[in-house]
């Protein structure tokens, strides 16, 4: 009976000891993924910003410019792409909607971002676009991979439509969370005029005919929770100018937008709470369960060995040939 218990304990010990690395290095990379049906919105504000008045074509100071950013997982599109890509894919349909102080639309830029659900590497498929123009991303956007590393990443800039390094600048504490701080600078770059402009009847083609061009620079800052790869806070020091052409009269350039864009306070709190709960799930899979199972496996193995040793001791040594009684003959 004791021997049977020892064997069962040994089987359990091997089961838990094997489960530990399998869970961490086999199951976690396959189970951790961005859900295809995720819907999220974010509000960012630039207080005391500079904004172009399209009526007068002059820049003016405004108390606030608001950016509403929505990302919506398109499940049907992701399933279609998965069939040919042969891996889990997420399709995010996004909209950056910029609102002036009067509540009127300043600009709206739609985009479609397609990426691997596990690694966040971009996946190229028909429909990948920014403001209706096809693009081919070569870096991450919006989210870092799970288990983010302390290194530079390639980050896609949707305005300039270029991929540039975003550098790891150190580890910080953000509202009780350990986060990695990343920063990217996009130098002054000529960019496309948005398809939708705030003045009715004004089209990007009409602006282009005047010879006026749009230029943009930004310093992008992200504070990323490394286990989930989710940014918990973001800022941008963003500037846009219109340069040259007959639209500006005798001026060389005019500021179209300048402001320090920051996440709205209620969205910061919401994001931090959300990331804290998701971080716990990642910790369970990568640390708590693997270490717990390994410890349990070692304890069960020790118990199995103890039972086996005790069983052998109690049954005593086997009789030897010397101790056997000699045969007596009459």
């Amino acid at each position: 009976m004791r021997r049977k218990a020892g064997l069962v304990l040994l089987a359990l010990a091997v089961f838990f000891a094997a489960l530990s690395p399998l869970l961490r290095w086999y199951a976690f990379p396959r189970l951790a993924k961005v859900p295809a049906n995720q819907y999220q919105d974010m509000v960012l504000e630039a207080k005391d910003a500079t904004l172009l008045d399209y009526g007068t074509m002059r820049a003016k100071k405004v108390p606030k410019v608001t950016i509403v950013q929505t990302l919506k997982g398109n499940v049907e599109a992701s399933e279609r792409i998965e069939e040919s890509a042969g891996r889990d894919v997420v399709v995010w349909d996004g909209l950056s909607y910029v609102v002036g102080p009067d509540g009127e639309m300043v600009s709206k830029i739609p985009e479609r971002y397609i990426f691997d659900a596990h690694t966040q590497e971009p996946v190229h498929a028909t429909g990948e676009m920014v403001d209706g123009d096809p693009v081919r991303r070569t870096g991450i956007e919006f989210k870092w991979p799970f288990l983010t590393e302390k290194r530079d990443y390639e980050y896609f800039d949707a305005q300039a439509r270029v991929t540039a390094p975003i550098t790891y600048e150190g580890t910080q504490d953000f509202r009780g969370l350990e986060v990695y701080y990343f920063e990217q600078t996009i130098p002054w770059t000529k960019v496309k005029i948005p398809k939708t402009l705030p003045v009715e009847g004004l089209t990007p083609e009409a602006v282009a005919q005047t010879g006026t061009t749009r230029w943009y620079t930004t310093v992008r800052k992200f504070w990323v929770e490394p286990l989930t790869g989710a940014p918990v806070y973001g800022e941008e020091i963003h500037r846009e100018e219109l340069r040259g052409g007959t639209l500006l009269g005798d001026r060389d350039k005019v500021t179209a937008f300048a402001g320090h864009v920051k996440m709205r306070e209620d969205y910061i709190t919401h994001t931090v709470d959300l990331v804290k709960s998701q971080r716990l799930l990642v910790l369970v899979m990568t640390s708590y369960l693997p270490w717990g199972f390994l410890t349990l496996g070692v304890l069960l193995l020790a118990l199995a060995l103890y039972l086996e040793a005790r069983g052998r001791r109690l049954s005593g040594p086997a009789p030897t040939a010397a101790e056997e009684p000699s045969s007596v003959s009459a």
Binding site: P35, A36, N37, Y39, D41, V43, T66, V68, T70, K72, G73, N74, V75, E76, S78, E79, D93, G94, L95, Y97, V99, G103, M105, K108, P110, D266, Y267, H270, T271
Partner: peptide, 18 residues
């Protein structure tokens, strides 16, 4: 399970709260 696409629209107004 991947679930279905959210019926919520891409926002063109400023939400009051998350």
């Amino acid at each position: 399970p991947s679930g279905g696409t959210s019926p919520k629209p891409l926002l063109t107004t400023v939400p009051a709260h998350p």
